[in-house]
Simulated scan of single mutants.
Amino acid sequence: MNRSLAMIACIVLTFTCTRAISKESANSCPLHAAAAADNAAAIEKLLSEGAELDARDRSGSTALLVATRANSVHAARALIEAGANVNAQDNIHDSAYLYAGARGHLDILKMTLAHGADLKSTNRYGGTALIPAAERGHVETVRTLVEAGVDVDHVNNLGWTALLEAIILGRGGEQHQRIVDILLAAGASPYIADREGVSPLQHARSRGYREIEKALLDAGAR
Rank of each mutant, 00 (worst) to 15 (best):
G220P: 06
A102K: 08
G50V: 12
T144P: 03
T18K: 13
S28H: 12
A221H: 04
K45Q: 14
Q175P: 01
A221I: 04
V86Q: 06
V152Y: 10
E81K: 15
N2A: 06
S72I: 04
A26H: 10
A34P: 04
H74A: 15
R19H: 13
A100H: 02
G173R: 15
L113I: 07
I8C: 07
L64H: 03
L201M: 05
G60K: 11
L46P: 00
A193L: 03
N91D: 13
V152S: 09
N123H: 11
D90W: 09
V150N: 05
I108H: 05
G208S: 06
M111S: 00
H203L: 03
L98D: 02
R77W: 04
Q202N: 01
A162D: 03
L184Y: 04
V73M: 01
A51P: 05
A67G: 06
Q89T: 11
V152F: 11
A26I: 05
G126R: 12
E213L: 03
N91V: 11
T62C: 06
A188T: 02
T16A: 14
A100T: 03
R222T: 10
A204L: 09
A84T: 04
R58A: 13
V198I: 15
R171H: 13
G137Y: 07
D107I: 01
L13A: 14
S22Q: 11
G208Y: 07
Y191C: 02
L145M: 12
A204C: 08
A41F: 05
R77Q: 14
L217E: 15
H105G: 02
N123E: 13
V12I: 15
L46I: 09
I8F: 10
L5K: 14
A51V: 05
A70D: 05
A76H: 05
K110E: 13
C17V: 03
R69L: 09
A70C: 07
E196I: 01
L164V: 01
T141L: 11
Q177D: 07
L46K: 09
V198A: 06
